[in-house]
Amino acid sequence: MWQDVLTIFIASALINNFVFARYLGLCIFFGVTKKMETAIGMSFTFTGVMLIGAALNWFIYKYVMMPLHIGFLKIVIFIGVIAAFVQAADTIMKKVTPALYYKLGIYLALITTNCIILAVPLLNAEEYADSLFKSMALALGSGLGFSLALIIMASIREKLELADVPRSFQGLPISFVLTGLIALAFLGFSGMITL
């Protein structure tokens, strides 16, 4: 059981990294990696929202949707839960900790509609509906894996600022090429753990 939890954690962070192996969450990935500072802010916010959102959805799926046999509504319900939770967090943070809000609040709006935040509860509902620990391992692994991707990308993009990239490739295009190359490197992890 604990070995499974660890396996799920490592697999979701590195081997099935959401950005480099499943190509999800790219809008945020390209949006905040121009500067290291925004990338780090987003990493913290993202991992936190991911954990809480996944836990909420896990309880709702297990104790509300399964008994009522409305599992087929999971996409709609999960989106609603995440949106409501993020909006609530936004409002509460603004009121209670304005300092934190002005540091991390701008990222919350972006996260509401992020596909990884939705993908993790959906994967959990399909595979780990029986175990909260496994679901949380997937959520934490995915969150940290995404943070890792953001921080690597930001460090490389800051270096690329000075590079003499052909004009038609400056900015986003070269970032896409770069992401493809990082994904190629991350293929080295493939096959290391089979779930």
């Binding site: 490389i156 270096k159 690329l160 000075l162 590079a163 070269i174 090429v177 770069l178 190359l181 490197a185």
Partner: peptide, 19 residues
């Protein structure tokens, strides 16, 4: 792709031969 697109010698992020 790995070398010239990123600005040529000195700017490539990855070792071109390995990519």
């Amino acid at each position: 792709i790995t070398k010239q697109l990123f600005g040529g010698l000195g700017y490539n992020v990855f070792n071109p031969a390995l990519i």
